[in-house]
Write a protein that binds this DNA or RNA. Structure first.
Lengths: 100, 100
DNA sequence: CCGTATCCCCTAGGATACTG
DNA sequence: CAGTATCCTAGGGGATACGG
């Protein structure tokens, strides 16, 4: 109890977290590897990225795939649901710009 | 420092807070008084509503008006910006419903 | 009726260091 | 390269109580 009130959860839980919208926005431009995301977003700690990606995957917003190359390459990408959310997020940013 | 990284703030700061989207959704149906909001949203403490309304007003998402009736009536309503945000929020809820 | 003040606990998340 | 583990502290937010 406490965090899991009715209707608080799902997307909202992760959307409210710091760095989430940066990560989604970056991944909306292209799939990327862990350190590519980390280096692209200034100030984002690896530990936070790690937990955030986990949450995003649990919400089916981000997918993780491992290519069996040498060395194996891990790639994160938006799912279809994630793409749609990213578009909505872009509208919020546009809204903020318009009223600033 | 800490909370005020570049581009973290504004709408995102308050949007991530618990109860925010409940409040916005309720106000999107009609303007309301403090206790009407409080009573409509189960579990929402008055102290939290108080601070949340303050943040929402600072972001120009919610307006507060006092009618000089007897007794004076205080009414909260969405601003135009707030209405637009509420619409976007509705799209997120619709997105979640579609993929659940 | 309309809030704000205070206390207190609990978790998010930053720093750092370390592993496969 | 791709993470996880640990530690620490700042602040969110619930309970309660009180003022206008």
């Amino acid at each position: 109890m406490g965090t899991t009130d009715a209707e608080w959860g799902g997307i909202w839980e992760v959307l409210g977290c710091k760095w989430t919208f940066h990560i989604l926005r970056f991944l909306s431009t292209r799939p990327a590897q862990f350190n590519q995301i980390k280096n692209a977003i200034e100030g984002l700690p690896a530990s936070t990225l790690s937990t955030r990606l986990k949450s995003l995957r649990e919400e089916n917003l981000v997918s993780r795939s491992v290519a069996d190359s040498t060395p194996p390459t891990v790639t994160y990408a938006l799912t279809e649901k994630g793409e749609e959310l990213a578009e909505i997020i872009a509208r919020i940013e546009e809204l903020e710009r318009r009223y600033e």
